[in-house]
Design a protein around this nucleic acid. Structure first.
Length: 260
DNA sequence: ATGTCGTAACGTTTACGA
C-alpha cells in the first residue's frame, strides 16, 4: 500500500497539478495539508471519479487537512484532542484496511510557529505537546500506526541546505527539535531516515529568492511509524521532480510503501 | 531587492500567513 503526504498549498490553485501527480504515482492513500478551504467547498468529486474515498477537515482560507483512500476510511476522527478552544483544522485520522493489517493513518499540519518567540511559537509547542499525548495513546494500541504530514520541523542541520539561515527560525530552534524528538522517543520510527542517510534530501523549497533553482531546501514533511508499522515498511521516497512543474506547491510529496 | 505565492475581501489592491 502506497501512502503519500503532500502539502498542496491551496486546493483551488493546485487541483490540476495534484490530479496529474495522482494519475502518475497512483497512491492508495493521500494525506493533504493546507487545503485552504471548507469541507463544503472541497472538490471531492474529482477524486471520487478516480476511485477515492474522501475525508476532509477544512477551514476557510487557511490550514485544512484531507485524506483520500482507495479503500474505505473507517473510524474517521478530525481535530487533535487536548484543547476544545483550538479551532485550527490541522489533524485527521482514519483506519484503512490492508490485505492483512488494519492501518491507523493520521494526517497532520503542525503549526509553523513563526515568529519565535511569541504567541504563535507558544501555540506550536503546545500543539506538539498535544500531538505527543495523542501519539502515546495510538502507540499503546500496539497496532500499525502512521502519522504523516507537514511537521514544520527541520530535524537536524543536515536537513537544510543552509542550516545557518534557519538558526533563529521556529522550524529549527532547539526547542522545536527537542519536542519532535520527544515524540520520536516514545518509540516511533522516522520513515525516511530509516531508509536514507546523509544530507541533500528536501521536501520544501521556498517560492522566494529562487530557492528551487539554487536547491535551497529543507526537509520538514515526515512519516512517523509505530513499531508495528515500521515492520511493514518496504520503501520510502520524495517526489522531488514535480517541484519544477507549472504552478507547483512549495512542498513536494513524501511517500512510503507499507506491506499491509 | 525583505525578492513569491494563495486566499479573502467593502477587490482592479491590500492584508495575512507561510
Amino acid at each position: 500500500m502506497k501512502i503519500a503526504t503532500f502539502n498542496i498549498n491551496g486546493i483551488k490553485a493546485r487541483a490540476a497539478a495534484l490530479l496529474d501527480w495522482i494519475d502518475e504515482s497512483a497512491p492508495d492513500v493521500v494525506l493533504m495539508q493546507e487545503i485552504k478551504c471548507t469541507d463544503e467547498s472541497f472538490p471531492g468529486a474529482i477524486f471520487e471519479e478516480r476511485g477515492y474515498s474522501v475525508a476532509t477537515h477544512g477551514q476557510k482560507g487557511f490550514n485544512g487537512v484531507a485524506m483520500l483512500s482507495k479503500r474505505p476510511i473507517e473510524d474517521l476522527r478530525c481535530g487533535l484532542p487536548g484543547d476544545a478552544e483550538d479551532e485550527q483544522a490541522r489533524w485527521i485520522e482514519g483506519t484503512v484496511m490492508g490485505n492483512r493489517h488494519a492501518l491507523r493513518i493520521c494526517g497532520l499540519y503542525l503549526p509553523n510557529g513563526n515568529p519565535a518567540p511569541g504567541p504563535k511559537y507558544d501555540y506550536k509547542l503546545a500543539w506538539m505537546k498535544r500531538l505527543r499525548a495523542r501519539a502515546a495513546e495510538l502507540l499503546a494500541s500496539e497496532e500499525p500506526v502512521l502519522m504523516g504530514g507537514d511537521y514544520n520541523v527541520i530535524p537536524q542541520d543536515e536537513d537544510a541546505t543552509r542550516p545557518e539561515a534557519w538558526r533563529e527560525d521556529a522550524l529549527a530552534l532547539p526547542e522545536s527539535r527537542a519536542a519532535f524528538r520527544r515524540i520520536l522517543h516514545l518509540g516511533f520510527t522516522e520513515a525516511f531516515r530509516a531508509r536514507v542517510q546523509g544530507p541533500g534530501h528536501y521536501t520544501f523549497w521556498d517560492y522566494q529568492a529562487g530557492a528551487w533553482n539554487r536547491n535551497d531546501g529543507i526537509r520538514i514533511d515526515h512519516f512517523l511509524l509505530s513499531p508495528q508499522a515500521a515492520d511493514l515498511m518496504t520503501d520510502c521516497g520524495i517526489d522531488k521532480a514535480i517541484r519544477s512543474r507549472d504552478k507547483p506547491s512549495d512542498h513536494v510529496p513524501l511517500w512510503i510503501e507499507i506491506d499491509a
